[in-house]
C-alpha cells in the first residue's frame, strides 16, 4: 500500500515538474546557446553509436530477410521490407533505446550529481530557478535530438541494407529502390515513424531529467536514479510504441 502511494505521488511530482519545464521553455529562445550546448552533449555525442547501430541493424535485416525471401523467390521486395521495418518500428524504437542508454543516463547522473553537490541549491540561493536554467534546456535538447537521431538511424539502416543486399547478395539495384518508392507511403509510414520518435524523445527526456532532479542526493541515490532512468524509459518506450502502433495502423 505504501509503495502504491509512493509511486502515485512520484507520478504526480513528475507531472508538476513537467508543467514547470514546459512553462520555462519559451524563455529559452532568448538564451538559445544553452540549448545548443545541450544538443551537443545529448545529440551529437549519441550520433556515433546511432550511426554504427543503424548500419549494422540494416545490414543484418537485409541478410536475414534475404535468406527467407529466397525461398519464396521474392528477393526484389528486400528493400521495401527493410525500409518499412526501419521507418515504422526499428528506427524510432532502437534509436530511443540507445538514446535512453547513452544520453538519458548521462542526463540523470549529471543532474543528480548537481543536486548531491548542492549546485542546484546554490543556483536557488542566487535567485536563479534551476528548472529554467538547468533542466529545461536539457529537456528541450533531448526533444529536438530524438527525431533527428531516429531519422539518421533509419537512413543509415537503409544504406546498410543496400550495401549488403545489392552489393553483396546481388539483389537488383533498380528493384530495390523502385519497390521502396512504390510501397512506402510518406504520410502513413515515414511521418508516423517521425511522430513516434517525437513522442519517444519527449518521454525519455522527461524521465531522465525528472529522475535526476528527484533523486536522493547521495552517491547511492544517484546510481539508483540512473538505473531507473534506463529501465523506466526503455519500458515506457516499448509500451508507448505498442499504443502508438495500435492507433496509427488500425
Amino acid at each position: 500500500m505504501k509503495a502504491l502511494i509512493n509511486s502515485v505521488s512520484r507520478l504526480g511530482r513528475g507531472t508538476i515538474f513537467l508543467s514547470k519545464i514546459l512553462a520555462g521553455i519559451p524563455q529559452l529562445f532568448l538564451r538559445f546557446q544553452l540549448v545548443v550546448q545541450q544538443v551537443y552533449s545529448v545529440g551529437v555525442q549519441t550520433l556515433f553509436i546511432t550511426l554504427i547501430a543503424g548500419l549494422f541493424v540494416g545490414m543484418v535485416l537485409a541478410l536475414q530477410l534475404y535468406y527467407t525471401l529466397t525461398t519464396f523467390g521474392a528477393t526484389d521486395t528486400l528493400g521495401m521490407i527493410v525500409d518499412l521495418s526501419l521507418v515504422r518500428e526499428l528506427g524510432p524504437v532502437v534509436a530511443a533505446l540507445l538514446f535512453a542508454g547513452r544520453a538519458g543516463s548521462a542526463l540523470t547522473a549529471e543532474i543528480g550529481l548537481m543536486k548531491a553537490t548542492e549546485q542546484l541549491s546554490g543556483l536557488e540561493m542566487m535567485a536563479v530557478d534551476p528548472v529554467h536554467r538547468i533542466i529545461a534546456p536539457r529537456f528541450l535538447a533531448g526533444f529536438i535530438s530524438m527525431p533527428l537521431l531516429a531519422a539518421i538511424f533509419s537512413a543509415v539502416g537503409i544504406l546498410g541494407a543496400y550495401s549488403v543486399g545489392v552489393d553483396l547478395l546481388g539483389v537488383d539495384s533498380g528493384a530495390f529502390w523502385s519497390q521502396i518508392q512504390a510501397k512506402v507511403d510518406f504520410y502513413d509510414d515515414v511521418m508516423n515513424g517521425i511522430i513516434k520518435s517525437v513522442v519517444f524523445g519527449f518521454i525519455v527526456s522527461w524521465i531522465a531529467v525528472f529522475e535526476g532532479y528527484d533523486c536522493i542526493p547521495t552517491s547511492e541515490g544517484v546510481a539508483r536514479a540512473t538505473t531507473r532512468t534506463v529501465v523506466h524509459s526503455s519500458l515506457a518506450v516499448l509500451a508507448m510504441d505498442f499504443v502508438l502502433t495500435a492507433i496509427m495502423y488500425q
Binding site: V87, I180, A182, V184
Partner: peptide, 8 residues
C-alpha cells in the same frame, strides 16, 4: 532522404 528516396 527518407522523404524523397525511401518513400513514394
Amino acid at each position: 532522404m527518407l522523404a524523397m528516396q525511401a518513400s513514394n
